[in-house]
Amino acid sequence: MIQPSNSLIVAVVSRTMIPYLQVFALYVIFHGHYGPGGGFQGGAMVAASLILSRMALGGERAEVQFRSAWGSPLGAIGALLFAAVGLVAVFFGGEYLNYAYLPLPLDDPALLRSYGILFIEIGVAIALTGTLVAIFDDLVEGHEDYD
């Protein structure tokens, strides 16, 4: 487990930054289907904020927000969400990932596609956050049981 940083500046700056980072990341995720950004970038930013909190605040306090053990299951769940949304379209008569067939109470196929993508983006974001944090934790742990 990572020890908290000794530097006051690092601690204060990162503690201030992390919430803003995460809010902005959420904006990037939800804005993604009609502007630059999206699940991947947003997820990466969420992961970056979590990793920053691990590095600056130390493992113990970072675990409060995001447990190490959640990493890989979340990665799987996010990807599963992505794949499942695609499959739902199949069950409602469309091709795989054809969001126009999603069972949402909307009439316009274009809108349907738009909101369908939102689900996908959320899935991607969750998957990316989980996976990246898991990779980070894994790499860090890899050190510690060796030293």
């Binding site: 299951p73 799987a76 769940i77 599963l80």
Partner: peptide, 24 residues
Amino acid sequence: QHLPLLVPITYLFSALVIPLVGLA
């Protein structure tokens, strides 16, 4: 009609499901 898709998607789903059932 979905045959071309079925093979990879089966593997993909199982790849994602295994870590979850692995929790149990």
